[in-house]
C-alpha cells in the first residue's frame, strides 16, 4: 500500500516537476510568473486526448504530438505578447496581466469551442496494474515517472553541457550583461519559452491520462508555482525537489487522511513556507539560478 502510494506520489510529483521546471526557467531569466503556462498544459492535454481517441492509441506519439504543440503555442505567445512588452521595457506587472489574460482566453475558448465536460482518455494503459515487490502499481505511473525523468534529464543536459545552456545560465544570472556579451537575448528568451512550452505540453498529456482533460485543468499550474516556491523560486533543482515533495505529500494526504484535504493541504503548505522560509528549500536568490 505504502509503496504503491509512494510511486503514485512520485509520478504526480514528476508531472508537477515538468511544469515547475518550465515555470522556473522563465522566472529565472525574466523574473516574472508566466501565467500563460497553463495554455500550453491545456493544449497538450486536449491534443493528447484527440490524438488517442481519433488517431491511434499510442501514448508515446501522443505525448510527442502534445509536446510539439505545447512548444509552438508557447513560442507564439512569447512572440505575440511578451516580446513587444519586453522590447518596450514594460513594467513586470504588465507581463503578469498579459499572461493572466491568455490563460483566461485558453480556458474559456475550450469551453466555448469544445465543451466544459471532463474527457477521459480512452487508453488501455490507464488502468493496467503491474506487480512489483508485492505492490500493485499502475503501469501508467511508471511510464509517467520514466518519461518525465528522461525529459528533465534532457533539459538538465541542455542547460549544463551545451552552448545554449551556457547562455541561459548566463542570462539567468544577469540578462543585461548577457546581452552585452553578445548573446542574442531575444532568441534566447524564445528558446526558453519553447523548452518550457514543450515540458508543459508533455505534462498536459500526463495529467490528461492520469485524471482527465477539462477546461480548468490549467489551474493545476498553480501546483507548479507552489512547487517552485517550496523548492526555492527560480532554482531548477529546487523546482524538481519541491514538485516531488508536493506530489508525494499530496498523494499521502489523500490516501491516509481525505482526498478533499489534498488541495487545501497544498495551498496551506505554500502559506506556511512563505511565512517561515520564503526562500524555499534550495533557493538562494543571489546564487546562480539556472
Amino acid at each position: 500500500m505504502f509503496v504503491q502510494q509512494l510511486i503514485t506520489g512520485l509520478s504526480v510529483g514528476s508531472i508537477y516537476a515538468l511544469m515547475a521546471v518550465g515555470y522556473s526557467l522563465i522566472y529565472s531569466l525574466l523574473n516574472f510568473t508566466n501565467f500563460a503556462h497553463s495554455a500550453s498544459v491545456l493544449i497538450g492535454a486536449y491534443a493528447g486526448y484527440y490524438y488517442i481517441t481519433l488517431v491511434v492509441d499510442n501514448p508515446i506519439t501522443a505525448a510527442l504530438c502534445s509536446l510539439v504543440l505545447g512548444a509552438i503555442l508557447a513560442a507564439l505567445i512569447e512572440r505575440i505578447t511578451y516580446q513587444p512588452l519586453l522590447d518596450k521595457g514594460a513594467r513586470r506587472i504588465y507581463l503578469l496581466i498579459a499572461g493572466l489574460g491568455i490563460s483566461i482566453i485558453g480556458e474559456n475558448l475550450i469551453v466555448v469551442l469544445i465543451d466544459g465536460r471532463f474527457h477521459a482518455y480512452k487508453t488501455a494503459l490507464s488502468s493496467m496494474p503491474v506487480s512489483i515487490f508485492g505492490a500493485s502499481i499502475g503501469v501508467i505511473d511508471l511510464i509517467i515517472l520514466l518519461a518525465s525523468a528522461v525529459a528533465l534529464l534532457l533539459v538538465q543536459f541542455l542547460i549544463q553541457k551545451t552552448k545554449v545552456g551556457l547562455a541561459i545560465r548566463g542570462a539567468a544570472f544577469d540578462l543585461t550583461t548577457a546581452s552585452i556579451m553578445g548573446i542574442n537575448v531575444r532568441r534566447l528568451i524564445l528558446i526558453v519559452f519553447i523548452i518550457a512550452g514543450s515540458l508543459a505540453g508533455l505534462s498536459g498529456v500526463f495529467l490528461g491520462i492520469k485524471y482527465t482533460a477539462y477546461p480548468t485543468m490549467g489551474n493545476l499550474t498553480n501546483k507548479a508555482f507552489i512547487s517552485a516556491v517550496v523548492g526555492g523560486l527560480g532554482s531548477l533543482p529546487g523546482a524538481v525537489v519541491g514538485a516531488l515533495i508536493l506530489g508525494v505529500l499530496e498523494t499521502m494526504i489523500s490516501a491516509y487522511v481525505s482526498s478533499a484535504m489534498r488541495n487545501l493541504f497544498a495551498y496551506a503548505l505554500l502559506i506556511v513556507i512563505l511565512l517561515i522560509r520564503p526562500w524555499g528549500l534550495m533557493g538562494k536568490s543571489m546564487e546562480d539560478k539556472a
Partner: peptide, 9 residues
C-alpha cells in the same frame, strides 16, 4: 471571459 482576456492582452 474570452472577451475580457482578449481585451486585456
Amino acid at each position: 471571459m474570452v472577451l475580457y482576456g482578449v481585451l486585456v492582452v
